[in-house]
Design a protein around this nucleic acid. Sequence first.
DNA 1: TAGCGGAATATGTAATACTTAATGGTGGAT
DNA 2: ATCCACCATTAAGTATTACATATTCCGCTA
Lengths: 231, 231
Amino acid sequence: MSIEKDLFKLKPIAYTTMADQVENHLREYIIKRSIKPGDPIPKETEIAQALGVSRNVVREALSRLRMLGMIESRKKRGMILTQPDVMKGLELIIHPTILDEHVRKQLFELRLVLEVGLGDLLFRRKTEEQLKRLDVIVEREQKATTQIERIRCEVDFHSTLYDMAGNETLKRFQDILMPVFEYVVEYESKLDHTSVGSVTHGDLVKILYDNNAEAYPNAMRKHLMPHLSHL
Amino acid sequence: MSIEKDLFKLKPIAYTTMADQVENHLREYIIKRSIKPGDPIPKETEIAQALGVSRNVVREALSRLRMLGMIESRKKRGMILTQPDVMKGLELIIHPTILDEHVRKQLFELRLVLEVGLGDLLFRRKTEEQLKRLDVIVEREQKATTQIERIRCEVDFHSTLYDMAGNETLKRFQDILMPVFEYVVEYESKLDHTSVGSVTHGDLVKILYDNNAEAYPNAMRKHLMPHLSHL
DNA sequence: TAGCGGAATATGTAATACTTAATGGTGGAT
DNA sequence: ATCCACCATTAAGTATTACATATTCCGCTA
């Protein structure tokens, strides 16, 4: 008796609603028919009738896909499949205050990993104009008098690096995660925010100018060492 | 007249529905009241009445949040906030066949960046048991006779690295993106899949055994060079 | 022929009723 | 007095209907 109760205790969590099932059906439908962005999908009423559920349920499922940018709908034209923004889902969930400490730290680690590995994209895609932008930021940083200004330069510098990598998806990833990072940095900055690692932003820029792809990863590692040593 | 038409031509795209607005209201509500996982949120009918919309609309909004794992609902207990899986949103969107070539390549670049930068997490968290797992894979790879077996070893090796990094979010990220990678690899493998870079898996394992954190990034860069040179 | 206007269509919103499941309390039996 | 069974209540899930809104198409008129 108590064994049975144990067995079924966690069952209700996996309970799926009609809307869940319709959502899955629609995903399958899209994939199996290899429907492409721009192609129309069936009308709400048609779907409802085909699956034997109320239009209401169908609308819940469609509403979800619409939120993710997978479909768009116009009043009479019906609905069409759209090329979704792959990072849209992340954007919808990530908000610093609802993420617990543990996850925030993991995302921050992710950032460190990205920046160390960013080199090869940078060396292949950097432009003169972007290098000069970095120069300006470094100069601004040296003249900075307030802590706030220095932090702003820090953010600008690393954001510019992501720009230079020439990968829109990566850039978007970074933009979404940024607020979380600031949250973590604030927490860490009590210790050693001014004393960034022994490698300065200026050193990094020089390496970029010199096309020294070998030197980049370890230079960035040293630059981020204050953070890395906290792992 | 035609100027006016021009001005409003793109307006309808940004058109927001009631469900969109309710969704945003709920997000705000959660954030402003700093509601934590486990805390209850108002009943559907209460929300509908408070915002002056039909319960139908409210349900669409709630359905979205539920899909993202932000809330859970039971028949009578009402709904509670839950700690969402940050990568859930990604998982829902990412399917190789609906992503266009351009985005797939960007995601593959992201993978290369991650693996090069992974070193510091590995050196801080690797265990003896995991290193031995790598040994086994390398050995299996050397004995492999078929191309399929070699590819399987390749995947296992790199997956194990993500395991060793000890970052659940990063691991999940990798697991979600894997199918996309396979898609890209298939496309690239016509050229030089067998001839992975001059640095072998065995070399990488040795570096891990030696605790040589300085050598790791550039070793991985060389290992991935066949892919990197395609950028 | 141009443009005006109405019919048709498909999504968006509202309202109502019913189903289902979980909770809580009441009352009866031992 | 305790325990169990049953019913009432509550809130989410589903269904149905009706209407609003916007867009397309077509035909009519000037």
